[in-house]
Amino acid sequence: MLYTQTAARLFGVAVRIVGQREEAEEVLQESFVAVWQRAGDYDAARGSATGWLTTIVRHCAIDHVRRRAGRPESRSAPEDLLLKFAAGERTDRGAELSVLQRCLGELDEQPRRAVLLAYVYGFTREEIATGCAVPVGTIKSWIRRSIERLKRCLDG
């Protein structure tokens, strides 16, 4: 059942970003209230419902983490997730995922890590900069360049 999977997947995304279930429940709750309030903004011509819903959940989760001081220590690196995908985990977007993986693979290692830390775990530019021991300006230009390269690769 598509809808059942949607809620469970969105909850999985919230757990992934905030790092624990109780807070992820709050995030999911906020997200669905936001979906209700902003349903009028959704337009199928502007992208898939999954993309729209996921963006709302990710942003709620990111705001939640930003409001809270610090984030949980124990989390696997995003590369682990990528390895898991590479190991052949089946998803309904398997084909799109493998194209995305290939394009991410074409990025240099550190910029790729920056993009994944941002998307997968909702890290801020500052947090990524601290983790990579580089200035925030470097992270901004890594992300900017990665975005341009990803678009060329994905659309090409």
């Binding site: 999954t50 998803t91 995922l97 995305l100």
Partner: peptide, 9 residues
């Protein structure tokens, strides 16, 4: 473009 990453979560 990026949502496939979430489908593998």
């Amino acid at each position: 473009r990026l949502v496939p990453l979430d489908t593998a979560t």
